[in-house]
Design a protein around this nucleic acid. Structure first.
Lengths: 297, 297
DNA sequence: ATCCTATGATCAGCTTTTCTTACCATTAGG
DNA sequence: CCTAATGGTAAGAAAAGCTGATCATAGGAT
């Protein structure tokens, strides 16, 4: 029973009043004058009450005067919304929630994000970091839209795009007997005090797996781990990217005998789509990491 | 460049979400399912971004989730406006500003207005009162939409519809020599102390005009005038409707020798139209006063 | 597995709406 | 009186919107 107001005719009314006539309004609206006339007439009979006086001039009726500010208000709201949505789609506004594994977050993201906000100055990014499983859970649960991580469990809810290889090596202090070696095989590690960490499971399923059984400690926190390494308490294995190169006394020696690599890549919801801002981030991450050493071609 | 959002497709999106599917939404909107599909698709490509996931089910994209509350808001605003305008047109809301000459305001309007608000309980009325000229000025200036008054100057900006005749008579105190007469001719008034008042100009242009020259006072305020009459200071002429019948000691004697009448009627802006509420009032006044004694057929 | 039924998507064809072109009526000014 | 504005009107074209039939897909029941 309530009349359905369309935006265009309301705009006509405003234009007529603002421009002071049907012709001028038509010009402003890029329409012909009859179109304006008819739009108004249609609106009037939809409301059941004329908005303009009949006699020649474009003068509002009292009802028209009553309507005018309300029309203006509705159109303002409409335009505000339209602009806002448009900004989202054009990536001139928006927010990306993403997550990354700590090594990526600390070694790659600073540069990547600063490049990103150069390219999209009006987008906002929240970066969470945590273990690969934590990242996976955030993406799967929809708490973030994108993750940069290594995948070890396929999940058909999620899709993973490999972007970089990251080879595992041994990390020890510079005065360790192995410290000067250019590369190592797993046999060389037998009998060493091996500290497990969150990335150690990369060795599972390789010839080096027996080493894990010997390891005395299992330290998941990176700060604690490096502290133990610097203290010379033991050695560990880490992907190259996770190797904290800012510690002068630590050495990274590639493990070649089983050559172990993890694949880092972009994790995103499988079929679901991304917000416009996240789409921009997705493309940007792919482009950036592909242009990197160790990129997967 | 900004997309023009139409209300209907937005309503579709809401319906799909609320009803949980395209079919159910179509049912609710009294449309067929393809209509809903196409409306959504049209909207999506207008925005340049999908709102629903592609795979079978009716699930929102992140962008869709972003849009949803905003769509809802715009539609709410639209409906509020639509309802408000409709109420105005249906006379379920609105305001009438009107004016009347004091005699009408005090003798006819109380009853008329109380009947009016019975018929239109949701309309509000403001009644101004003042001299016929004052009423005319208010209507001409657009400060009120309707006036009930006697017209003495034609004005093609205004249109006057005569509704009642009101005959002029002599008013005096009950102990005045003329008080017992059933009717009078103007000669009977010669030599009397005649008090002019705002309605005296009705005598202009009649045989009784010479009387005006003799009059000693000119009192425009009705309270003062009656006070003087009650005090027996003089007599005056008044239209019957203006005769203050609540004063027991005053008598009204019809003047028949020139029979002088004023025409009371409805004054409204000539070509301009009225607000819906004022239209209701106009019709109501005409109907009410026509059903009155002294009505002009 | 297979059928069954639900979902949405698609397409041709129709109806409605909306616009344009061309013309008319009225009015104000030169 | 003529001209140049105004807005209104009518017929046809274009666009939008809707329907009805049909299709592809997925989930559930047998």
């Amino acid at each position: 029973m309530l009349p359905e107001l369309k935006i265009q005719p309301l705009r006509c009314v405003l234009a007529i009043v603002d421009e002071g006539g049907f012709h001028a309004a038509a010009r402003q609206l890029h329409r012909t004058q009859p179109a304006v006339s008819m739009a108004v007439r249609e609106l009037e009979q939809r409301l059941g009450e004329p908005l303009f006086e009949k006699g020649g001039k474009a003068a509002l009726t009292p009802f028209g005067r009553y309507c005018l500010p309300r029309f203006r208000e509705l159109i303002t709201q409409h335009d505000r919304l339209s602009r806002e949505l448009w900004a989202q789609v054009q990536k001139q506004a928006g927010h990306v929630d993403m997550a990354a594994v700590p090594s990526v977050a600390s070694r790659l993201m600073p540069r990547l994000l600063s490049d990103f906000i150069l390219r999209y100055p009006d987008l906002r990014v929240s970066l969470h970091d945590g273990s690969a499983d934590f990242v996976r859970r955030l993406v799967a649960g929809g708490e973030v839209e994108l993750g940069i991580t290594s995948l070890w469990r396929e999940d058909d809810e999620l899709s993973f795009m490999p972007l970089m290889r990251d080879d595992v090596g041994v990390v020890c202090r510079d005065d360790h007997p192995l410290a000067e070696r250019a590369e190592l095989g797993w046999e060389a590690l037998q009998g060493q005090v091996l500290i497990r960490n969150g990335t150690s499971r990369l060795l599972e399923g390789t010839e080096a797996e027996p080493l894990l059984a010997e390891s005395a400690f299992d330290i998941s926190n990176m700060i604690s781990l490096t502290a133990m390494l610097v203290a010379g308490i033991g050695i560990t294995t880490l992907p190259r990217l996770a190797f904290p190169q800012e510690y002068e006394r630590l050495r990274f020696i590639p493990l070649v005998d089983p050559m172990v690599e993890r694949e880092l890549g972009l994790l995103r919801p499988g079929k679901r789509s991304l917000s416009p801002a996240a789409q921009a981030m997705e493309a940007f991450v792919i482009e950036s990491l592909r242009a990197q050493a160790f990129a997967i071609p």
